[in-house]
Each structure stands twice: as structure tokens, then as C-alpha cells.
Design a protein around this nucleic acid. Structure first.
Lengths: 128, 128
DNA sequence: CAGTATCCCCCCGGATACTG
DNA sequence: CAGTATCCGGGGGGATACTG
């Protein structure tokens, strides 16, 4: 599996119309690019985290959305949930091997965004 | 040491909390991961396209959302809009250099999603 | 052809309260 | 601590009609 083919769309089978509607890829894309999906995956890419740590790490996320996002990503097999049957409960979240593969593609993207965000939001003219 | 540092978040400057809320990176992330942002950028990564071509290429997008998405991406300096003053009008959309840099990070992601979507939506158990 | 304008609904997602 | 339950408002986003 060569990396060079990663940039050849033809090799991925969505030559004609980017992606057909109602196909699995669209579903996964929606999950990943959901409002908090990327940030959860990025957060877990560094280390496994507990619920409360995730909540504090991803600034601004609500409990509802954290739970919802984690459930979706877990159902997709991207995030692993490990609950200790202790009192008080302790639950650790981490990436599955599949999730790690995905995160490896997300990190360069996020890195680029972090690097260029200031220029982008400022606008081409004003940045100049 | 080439790609490996891409996996070190510290190198990108969002060590502490993934990304601060209300920061430029969040804004750009929201634009890119908007419902149609990724698909528009991917579509334009192969070739510049006219309005109607984009509409047909990105299956399922409405005129309203195509216009909205294009305006956002153009304002961000990621997409270039070139209108010919002819009748009937002809407008070409393409990626700016900045947009191309971004697309180069999006393509591996989309490729991976296309490759693994079937397994993901099927679920780990059933896929097994 | 390349878009606006308009109507309108769904549901995403936030806030708050509560529980094992 | 790690969530669920419930309420609720705004706006994301679809469908249709219209225009230069």
C-alpha cells in the first residue's frame, strides 16, 4: 500500500461524483465531521482520557454532546469505552486501531488549520 | 523524522486543551467540516468546476447550500470564484493555493473513509 | 446559466436538573 | 464520577419559485 496513491482520487473510487449520496462514506464523513467529532478524536489521539478529562479538554462541549459524540464514535468502532465496575465509577476512552488510523489522517489536517487559521479568518486582504 | 512529528500535537501548539473555544482554528474547522465543506473542496481538488458542474458532482446538495458553502470558502480564501461577463454567464470555481494545501490534507482523510466506510457502518461484530 | 428570495420544518445542540 | 432526562430555542438546511 503506497502512500502516493493516497492523492489519486481515481484510486479511491469516487472519480465521477465525489461521493454518491446515501453511501456509507457519507455517513462516516458526517459522523467524523459532526460538530464535535474531530475534536474528540484529536483529544484521544494523544492519550486515553476519562469522561471528565474529555469534558475539560474539549472546551465548550456540553455533557449531552460529549455523550452523544462518544456513543456514535464507539458504535463506529473508532473509540473504545472501558468502564471499571468501581465506586465511584471510572471510565476510560481511547482510540481503537481503526480510530488511530483515522486520527493519523486528522492530525495533519488539524495541524494545518491551527497554522493557517489566523490568516484565513483575517481574510486575504487584511492579512496582507 | 518526517511525518512522525505530525503525530506530535505539541508541535502544532494545541497541547493543553485540543483547541481553545472561540479561537480562529475552531472557526475554520467549523467551515471546513460544515455539512458540505469537505465535499466541495474534494470536488474542486481534481479540477476547477462551474456552478452547474459542482451541483451535479456533489450529489444531494441544494442550491442554497452550494451557494452558502462556496461563499464561506471564498471568503476564507480557500476557493477562487471567476465570473465571465458573458451572456449567459459562466462562473468557474477552483482552489486557491491555500485551498490546495488544505485539500492535500483532506484527500488522505477521504480516501481512508472511502476505504473503511463499509466496515465502519456495518459494525465491528457484523463485519467480522 | 448562475444564482436569489422565500417559506418553513426539523433537529442539533445548549442549559438545567436529576441519578446510580 | 459518569453519565441520563427533559425542555426548548435558533438556525442549519431543504424545496420551490423567481430573476438577470
Amino acid at each position: 500500500m503506497d502512500v502516493s496513491m493516497m492523492h489519486n482520487l481515481t484510486g479511491f473510487g469516487f472519480t465521477a461524483g465525489v461521493l454518491p449520496a446515501n453511501c456509507p462514506s457519507r455517513t462516516v464523513l458526517d459522523h467524523v465531521t459532526s460538530k464535535w467529532g474531530v475534536l474528540v478524536l484529536i483529544a484521544l489521539s494523544q492519550q486515553s482520557l476519562r469522561w471528565g478529562e474529555l469534558r475539560r479538554t474539549i472546551e465548550g462541549i456540553s455533557e449531552k454532546m460529549l455523550a452523544s459524540t462518544l456513543r456514535t464514535l464507539e458504535a463506529d468502532g473508532l473509540v473504545l469505552r472501558e468502564a471499571q465496575p468501581t465506586i465511584p465509577p471510572r471510565v476510560d476512552y481511547s482510540l481503537t486501531p481503526l480510530g488511530r488510523e483515522l486520527a493519523d489522517r486528522l492530525l495533519p489536517l488539524m495541524g494545518w488549520i491551527a497554522d493557517n487559521a489566523d490568516e484565513i479568518v483575517a481574510g486575504p486582504q487584511r492579512a496582507q
